[in-house]
Amino acid sequence: MSVRIDSWVWAVRLAKTRSQATTLCRGGHVRINGNAAKAAQQVKVGDEVRVRLHGFDKIYRVAGLATRRGSATEAAQYFEDLTPPPPARVDRPADIVRDRGAGRPTKRERRDLERLRGRDAEASFTDE
């Protein structure tokens, strides 16, 4: 048995609405077993689902097939969270400050800032 990925993402509360789940899939932010997923693609128990939410990659293993949206505790039964824990607070810089009036950061400065914040763009699954 299988379920559409956009329906599953919505049912397990990774997206607030079904249309947001579909938009995530269309935008390439959802992958099943390492491959980009279209909204109508089927997901089965045991598949690895990677979702890019709020600039971070979340990794889940499908433990059950949800077709309807329920409570958060009910939704947690349908997946295992395999996302590695974020780096310890002491490893991250306290705050990154740019001079006022310095303008927008260049592409190189932006990449350096992202690397400092622990969101290395080269490690993202969208660049694979």
Rank of each mutant, 00 (worst) to 15 (best):
R69L: 07
R18G: 03
T23I: 05
A39C: 06
E74H: 14
A21H: 03
P85L: 15
Y60V: 03
V3F: 05
V43L: 05
R13W: 05
F56P: 02
R89M: 11
A36D: 15
G70C: 05
R115H: 14
F125M: 10
R31I: 00
F125V: 08
T106L: 10
V45S: 04
D91M: 09
K16R: 11
A36T: 13
A37R: 00
A15W: 02
A39W: 04
R68C: 03
S71M: 11
A123M: 09
Y60H: 09
S19Y: 14
P85N: 08
R4M: 10
R110A: 11
F125K: 07
R68V: 10
T17H: 04
F56L: 09
E128A: 13
L82W: 12
A102P: 08
G28H: 01
A15G: 04
V9F: 02
L53F: 09
A63W: 08
R100Y: 14
P105V: 06
Y78S: 04
L82I: 12
R108F: 11
P85A: 15
A72F: 11
V49S: 01
V90E: 14
G101R: 06
E48A: 11
A88L: 09
P93W: 06
N35H: 09
T126I: 12
V51Q: 00
L53P: 01
G34E: 10
I5E: 00
A21I: 04
V12E: 01
E128M: 11
T22L: 07
A63K: 07
Q77T: 13
R110K: 06
R98F: 15
I96H: 15
V9T: 05
D127V: 15
K107R: 13
V3Y: 05
V9Q: 09
R110M: 13
R13S: 00
I32E: 00
T126V: 12
G46Y: 07
Y60S: 03
R52I: 09
E128P: 12
A76C: 04
G103I: 11
A75G: 04
Y78R: 02
S7G: 06
G28F: 00
A102R: 14
A15M: 01
D47L: 05
A76I: 11
D6G: 01
I96L: 15
T22G: 09
S7W: 03
R111C: 08
V49E: 02
K107N: 09
G118F: 05
A21W: 00
M1Y: 06
V45D: 01
K58I: 06
T17I: 03
Y60P: 01
G64N: 07
T106R: 05
K16M: 11
R18I: 01
D95I: 15
D57W: 08
V90R: 15
L53E: 02
K44W: 10
S71P: 07
L14N: 03
V90D: 15
